[in-house]
Design a protein around this nucleic acid. Sequence first.
DNA 1: ATCTATTTTTAGTTTTGTCTAAATTTAAAT
DNA 2: ATTTAAATTTAGACAAAACTAAAAATAGAT
Lengths: 231, 231
Amino acid sequence: MLNKNVFLEKYFLMTRSEENYLKTIFHLGGGDSKSITTNAIAEQMETKPSSVTDMAKKLSEKGLVDYVRYQGVSLTDAGIKTALSIIRKHRLWEVFLVKKLDFSWDEVHEVAEQLEHIKSEKLIDKIDALLDFPKYDPHGDPIPTKDGKFQERDEKLLSDMPINSNGICVGVKDSSVPFLKFLDKNKIALGNTIKVLDKEDFDNSLRIQMNGKEMRISHQIASNLYVKKND
Amino acid sequence: MLNKNVFLEKYFLMTRSEENYLKTIFHLGGGDSKSITTNAIAEQMETKPSSVTDMAKKLSEKGLVDYVRYQGVSLTDAGIKTALSIIRKHRLWEVFLVKKLDFSWDEVHEVAEQLEHIKSEKLIDKIDALLDFPKYDPHGDPIPTKDGKFQERDEKLLSDMPINSNGICVGVKDSSVPFLKFLDKNKIALGNTIKVLDKEDFDNSLRIQMNGKEMRISHQIASNLYVKKND
DNA sequence: ATCTATTTTTAGTTTTGTCTAAATTTAAAT
DNA sequence: ATTTAAATTTAGACAAAACTAAAAATAGAT
């Protein structure tokens, strides 16, 4: 009974703000027992370092982060678990919006930021099943499993692919709206086949074949596209 | 520009709490230019009258309710519009949960209470379309249209139906979990045909034919079922 | 090793939404 | 028309989450 209450307090009764902090810390690498500075978190969340300090103390009290003054925070196992459950929800909702409601991949983030905080295990499990248990979100980011497992993919940046190598476009590094819209406009989509034909030493631009059609791509673009090698 | 900001402040930037107050006031009849007392609102929301007073002032400042000290509040046109948009979202999400995710009708309320606060016009319009623009929620309550129109139905309580009259079960007055579970257990569902065979003067219980099968129903039950008359 | 510049924390304030307790108003009853 | 009981509001306090400005600690450069 006491045990159950502890569970309820730490897992169910997380505030929206606490959840957002955990998510951010995870994305900044705080799950790899790396210390993330309050400054870095503040910048990412567009808030002030002093606010982060307050929250660091609170999350530390709840056993979700390890916090050392003037050093930074890293996630505990409980913190990682919670962060992954939020990221899981976020990404599943993104898939739902795209696959079931015809949202475009540049529209989903904002809405998913809200939906990820809905508290109902049954709901997200049903959404998962409705979508047939997708492994990746619309931007190619992996969706953690229910028990918090992360399936990393063997992918590299297009800009790091050698000449004459083949692959499939599987994800974006930058998922900002302008970048995604740019990709749409240029018919670059996840799932496309890619062959690197040539690299220009001068500006690092690439000549590639995408879905059979030849095109030229700037380094800026190539360094934000993830590709899975074929061979 | 200034005008747009006013719109943003009053419509988009409603807090969850404000939305819940408006919804409650509407459900208590505050949309019919009837004054709802702070006490009634407090009881419904399981909060204190003094808290309601505070919120009444705030909503009044925003032009969403008319508030007269010691009298109570009623919704303005803007308040009604906002309340209806929340109720619309709530009921559409309920339909979604039942029709697309196989929730039972006694499970949906709690989750819909969260989902109704998601801020995305596009999202709820897409959900509406996905569901093929349903007119009623799983409990038979009408879903307001996008422009805030309410389609009332010509329905009466089963307990008020005369002997030998026929109808279709279209809604529940009490949508508490125990009542809904009771109906499930007794195979009483919306859409069932109903004929009143006999009334017992002693305890006001009814003998009815439901989907061809004869059964006896207490007054307690009959006074919480809405029926649409056939003839 | 000391001094700065930067980072981080502390202390104190604000806003939102709630509460309790006290004061006020209303309404009902004589 | 008073009186009293009930309803309602006010005043003051609190918790959460943020902020600003000042203080403290760290790290880099000499």
